[in-house]
Design a protein around this nucleic acid. Structure first.
Lengths: 209, 209
DNA sequence: CACTTGCCTAAGCGCTTGCTCACCTTCAGG
DNA sequence: CCTGAAGGTGAGCAAGCGCTTAGGCAAGTG
């Protein structure tokens, strides 16, 4: 249990969190929240996974909810970053949409523990923190809608209902975090490629080379 | 809070649960689990919504987990029923897939509280109950894969990766339960129609009339 | 050296949790 | 009218919860 750390690729994850003890606690919290959910996770469990006493948690975080908020905030920042840089990138709308979906899905599969917490534990946040996060999510929605609108305007896409399709595309990508399994047959790259292809079909783009 | 009951259409929901007090408790549990999640819901909350004392719950159900299991079981039975009757129906593969998605999505939107519990509180079940439910889910997967395979065999669909696309189609439909909002602009029927169209595009079927 | 600062623990407080138990009420059958 | 079953309640138990407090230790600074 908790054997395989979620190190994907070369770079150290959660490098922005310091000091070291705070980062260890946060990583432990991500694992615990992803496995059992926020409410089923105890502060003792988190501290235990990080090799500390329960009280140590409260040196670095005011409450258990603050831990969730930090995870949620960093995760949403990363997710939004991925979508925005695809939306602002060069290339045809089809290329940009394909890029967006591929990298967004790859992140959700590769960091599926983090993504699961980020995407499915929103209701556990306090009212203020939740509205802050919801604003970030609206920006993600806007980024995808932007690409789809560009494609429609350019005549490359055939989309009867842009907001509905935007919602469906994001929904499809997000749900990867729920079902993705490291022990499964598919790698994050493969899922990303498959999903990019599916989404291009959904918007009626001409098949890519 | 809890003002609008989840009565959609004419028939009485949860008619198969009796006696009446047990049904009221179950409906209260569905609402509470859907709003706050299983672990954040207390037995006192459930009993209170049903207008009873906390102890009354244990006359009709052995544990809180048994309540969740009953909900999950009935919900999965219904969902599987919908998919199977579409898979076994008449018509071309495209028509059957469209039917399956439309009715499956309509159920997820129309009964989004139940669906949310059914689809997202699986981990809260005990080990035995969970494996029972997982078996039902595999049957749902098989029903959809069957239709897609038929379409590929008939040359009506163009699907490079059948298991992957099956997974994506189900994932797309299931996630409706997460985002669907009664206060939103779309009706369950509209979402069902939109999604049926999107899925036909995903499998490369010729556009329907 | 004394003193502060950063980081940690052992112990435990006040409260809520899932669940139980002794008891009460209603009502059909003999 | 008595009885037993069905379905309910108020009080409360043991366990576990989030979080606090008092204090210990090592390192850096005057």
């Amino acid at each position: 249990m908790g054997a395989a750390k979620e190190t994907l690729g070369e770079e150290q994850p959660w490098a922005e969190v310091s000091p070291d003890a705070a980062r260890r606690l946060l990583i432990a919290a991500v694992e615990a929240f992803a496995e059992r959910g926020y409410h089923a996770t105890t502060t003792r469990d988190i501290a235990g996974r990080a090799g500390m006493s329960p009280a140590a948690l409260y040196i670095h975080y005011k409450t258990k909810e603050e831990l969730l908020h930090r995870i949620s905030r960093l995760g949403h920042d990363k997710a939004l970053d991925i979508l925005r840089s695809a939306a602002d990138g060069e290339g045809t709308p089809a290329e940009r949409l394909s890029d967006a979906v591929r990298s967004f899905v790859r992140w959700h599969a590769g960091h599926h523990m983090t993504a699961r917490v980020v995407q499915y534990e929103l209701d556990a946040l306090g009212a203020e923190h939740r509205t802050e996060i919801v604003a970030l999510r609206r920006q993600s929605d806007a980024a995808v809608r932007e690409i789809i609108n560009d494609g429609v305007r350019a005549g490359d896409f055939d989309v009867p209902d842009v907001p509905g399709t935007t919602l469906a595309v994001l929904s499809l990508c997000i749900d990867v975090a729920r079902w993705f399994n490291v022990a499964g047959r598919r790698t994050p790259d493969e899922v990303g490629a498959t999903y990019a292809d599916l989404v291009l079909r959904m918007v009626g783009a001409a098949p890519q080379k």
